[in-house]
Design a protein around this nucleic acid. Structure first.
Ligand SMILES: [Mn+2]
Ligand SMILES: [Mn+2]
Ligand SMILES: [Zn+2]
Ligand SMILES: [Zn+2]
Lengths: 148, 148
DNA sequence: AACATTATTGGAATAGTTCCAATTCTCACT
DNA sequence: AGTGAGAATTGGAACTATTCCAATAATGTT
């Protein structure tokens, strides 16, 4: 269930970007927040259809684009894999566990972010920074994901 | 023109991975080395066709996969863009300039690589690390020059 | 040379995403 | 509350990038 705060944030952020808050966009955002993993568009589609069976895949893509535009989710890409969507707004890296297929969020300390920016020549302006790891986690159960 | 050293390296690396050195693979590697940018498979295809007009796109994909497998090139991905291929074997990040569409290599100091690894929980083993920036190489206030 | 293995090929198939034109919805203004 | 303009949604077609496939060619080994 979506909280009042989340709903307000959603409406606010959409409006700020000149977009409307619609039932479809609300449900798409809700299912991404409900299970804080990194679903593909198809996976979002499957989850949304439970509550809104008539929604189309095109609309899911449109809604995801709207949420990306207003900054509530981010797109995550791995080599030759479909785009995934991430609702974690903190600075973080992604660890793609090739054994389980899972994607884990890894927090990035503020000073490391600064260090990352510092390797760029002075005339390069970075709008976004992506840091991702690929590998495997030895004992999956002992390290819970970092969430807000 | 491919140097003797490069050719030896290629043959060596392919053989070490249980693959054969073939004219197709040599030319594909050669065109990637000749212009050290980050071409897509289609761009590699276009360049290879100059010297080897009968090569097929499927073979270009096969050759690129072979070169990736033997570690001579790396795949680079950006959100919703085709895979690009990079012959720079040093540890480096990628800066995707959205103004020009160009991709620039940014060296990563050894101590920063170590620091990056250090943010992972101890039971996570990273086989590869990808660091990429998206932005513009010109400051926003500067008037863009038109050339070419 | 014969054989087994590997590479190449064109085209079909697939996957993911975007596009499009028709329809429906929303909201601002009467 | 009704009207109209703009925005969102829809299904399906189109598109792009990549992979698959089965036939053919090349290669290296005995
Ligand atoms: Mn995976
Ligand atoms: Mn680009
Ligand atoms: Zn994430
Ligand atoms: Zn590179």
């Amino acid at each position: 269930m979506i909280s009042e705060t989340q709903n307000t944030t959603l409406t606010q952020r959409l409006t700020d970007s000149g977009l409307r808050s619609t039932p479809h966009r609300e449900v798409v955002y809700q299912v991404i927040l409900a299970k804080r993993d990194h679903p593909t568009a198809e996976e979002v589609f499957d989850r949304v259809k439970v509550q809104m069976p008539t929604i189309s895949l095109a609309t899911v893509y449109n809604c995801l684009d709207a949420l990306v535009q207003c900054g509530l989710i981010k797109q995550v890409n791995f080599v030759r894999e479909p785009t995934r969507y991430c609702p974690n707004l903190h600075e973080h890296a992604h660890f793609h566990d090739e054994t389980t297929g899972e994607i884990h969020d890894i927090g990035i300390p503020a000073d490391l972010m600064a260090r990352l920016r510092s390797i760029l020549p002075s005339d390069y302006t970075a709008l976004s920074i992506d840091l991702s790891f690929r590998g495997s986690a030895r004992s999956p159960s002992t390290q819970p994901d970092h969430h807000d």
